[in-house]
């Protein structure tokens, strides 16, 4: 009916955008910053942070405000993206040396990474919804992943598991679904932008 459609249009015009502080969590090197960059590139045309093959590249919480995203049916979300350092139970500076850093650089990186993990845990109290980014080529039954998901459930924070790196041959999204059968899991490649439409749909479903 044209009148109903018109009222809907007016309603949408004056409806306040839903504001969400969206945390991006996960173990190191799962692709959290790559996903944050992908979302930022898709909607505001600029990246959020640098990425590296050396773990713990993100050692401080990085934020980007006013990322307004739109669904196919006209709904909008006003996101503040909170990209957090990877959560780990161990940090060995010698691992960084093996990746090519000098001893001095490696020690600084390790010290900063420990502070980053603490900061990421503290931020759990300040986010409205969370994307848990897991590397789909790795075994998902890991105590760090279980701890992150357990904390989100205990705090009643809605979350979506993002199985990243589906462009790689060894990726196995089914294994992640089987490990966490009660959670919604979406497979993507943040690096190449594969399956991002489905990802945005799942994101809208999560926060509604």
């Amino acid at each position: 009916m044209p009148i109903r459609r018109f009222l809907k249009f007016i309603n949408r015009l004056f409806k306040k955008k839903k504001q969400i502080r969206l945390g991006i969590y996960g173990p190191p090197n799962g692709g959290k910053t790559t996903l944050a960059n992908r979302i930022c590139l898709d909607w505001i045309g600029e990246e959020l942070g640098s990425v590296s093959h050396i773990p713990h590249e993100t050692r401080r919480v990085q934020m980007k405000e006013k990322i307004v995203i739109q669904s196919g049916d006209g709904k909008t979300l006003d996101l503040t993206i909170v990209d957090t350092p990877g959560i780990a139970t161990k940090i060995d500076y010698e691992d960084f040396v093996r990746k090519g850093l000098s001893k001095k650089e490696a020690r600084v990186r390790a010290r900063e990474a420990t502070r980053g993990v603490i900061e990421a845990i503290k931020w759990l109290d300040n986010v409205d919804a969370v994307l848990v980014v897991l590397d789909a080529t790795k075994n998902p039954v890991d105590q760090v992943n279980i701890t992150i998901l357990g904390n989100l459930e205990a705090r009643k924070i809605p979350f979506l598991i993002v199985a990243n790196k589906i462009d790689l041959k060894k990726a196995n999204v089914t294994r992640i679904r089987e490990a966490f059968p009660n959670a919604k899991v979406i497979g993507i490649s943040a690096k190449y932008g594969h399956n991002m439409d489905k990802f945005y749909e799942a994101l809208f479903d999560m926060v509604e």
Binding site: I87, T114, I118, I121, V144, L149, G150, N151, A154
Partner: peptide, 12 residues
């Protein structure tokens, strides 16, 4: 899980 995250923070 909350105690686990407490232990992780303490580890760091």
């Amino acid at each position: 899980p909350e105690e686990e995250s407490e232990i992780i923070a303490k580890t760091m």
